[in-house]
C-alpha cells in the first residue's frame, strides 16, 4: 500500500517537463507546459480515489482477519 503511494508520488514528480516557475507573468514564452499539469491533477484525483477504495477494502479485511499481515490473510493460491 505504501509502496503504491510512493510510486504515485514519484511519477507525478518525474513526468512533468517544466521550463520556468512564473505562472502569471505576461511573457507567454516563459510559461510552463500546462498539459502535463492537467494530467498530474487528474492522476492525483485518481490516486485519491484508489486510496479510499483500498482503505475500505483494508478495513473490511482487517475486520475479517484481525490483522494486516498479508501472509496470514493469503488463502487463495494461484
Amino acid at each position: 500500500m505504501n509502496l503504491y503511494l510512493i510510486i504515485i508520488g514519484y511519477k507525478t514528480g518525474g513526468v512533468a517537463p517544466i521550463i520556468e516557475p512564473d505562472m502569471p507573468v505576461a511573457t507567454l514564452e516563459r510559461f510552463v507546459d500546462p498539459l502535463p499539469q492537467a494530467m498530474v491533477l487528474t492522476s492525483i484525483v485518481i490516486g485519491l480515489g484508489v486510496l479510499s477504495l483500498m482503505v475500505a477494502m483494508c478495513i473490511r479485511l482487517y475486520e475479517k482477519h484481525g490483522t494486516f499481515d498479508m501472509s496470514v490473510i493469503s488463502k487463495l493460491r494461484g
Binding site: A16, E20, P21, V40, L41, I44
Partner: peptide, 15 residues
C-alpha cells in the same frame, strides 16, 4: 511549487 505548478501544489497539499 518550485517547478511552477501552483495548481498542482495546492491540490497535492490538500489531498
Amino acid at each position: 511549487l518550485f517547478l511552477g505548478a501552483p495548481d498542482i501544489a495546492i491540490t497535492q497539499l490538500v489531498v
